[in-house]
Amino acid sequence: MASNVKFAVKKVDFYYGNFKALDQIDMEIAQRQATALIGPSGCGKSTFLRCLNRMNDLIPGTRVEGEILLDGQNIYDSDIDVVNLRRRVGMVFQKPNPFPKTIFENVAYGLRVNGFKNKAALRESVEKSLLKAALWDEVKDRLNNSALGLSGGQQQRLCIARALAVEPDVLLMDEPASALDPIATQKIEDLIHELKNNYTIVIVTHNMQQAARVSDITAFFYMGRVVETGETEALFTRPGLKQTEDYITGRFG
């Protein structure tokens, strides 16, 4: 396995009951790069994203076959601590979902759950996370205000700060900007550019221009399969397969 591979996905099938949503997915996800998953609705891209930190385990009647190795270890092995897995592989959702708590407590939440008690260290860590999420300057004077008073874009960056606070290796993003206005979207995209220097990012997006702007690698999903994976620039200027070309040029979908 090449040393820069974060996830090695091997022959993964995924079922919702009898419905096979993913079919023989083989893919490597490079560390400290942004990988975008694109494809029409229902193609399996979000299902695949949720496989990467076993979020699908929470849905009854689902089943995974194959292997997903994170730094060489199969995350579906029986001895894997799923809570620890999700600490290492954080997630940001489509709709910002801050807790009905203060800004500070939102970011501190994961740390407290993980037994972090030292107040000064906690404060330092919250500040660091908010800085990394490019939100610190906007909230530093009102850390004790409710997170629900923030704008949608700020809430989403707060959720990113919350995910970063527990020091993950990987950040999964499921349509992180689709509920945001263009300026807030721009901030999230700039943030992704920053974060990929230190984190492995996997982003699902319906917005192809967004995939083109933020990612290094793009994978095109269609009907539960990976049709084509490649460097983003090549995929959007000179895709290898006609099916990819037809999708990204809007000739089907």
Binding site: F236, R238, T244, T249
Partner: peptide, 9 residues
């Protein structure tokens, strides 16, 4: 229209 791939070329 932000064309892509063959359309862009």
């Amino acid at each position: 229209e932000q064309p892509m791939a063959r359309d862009l070329r």
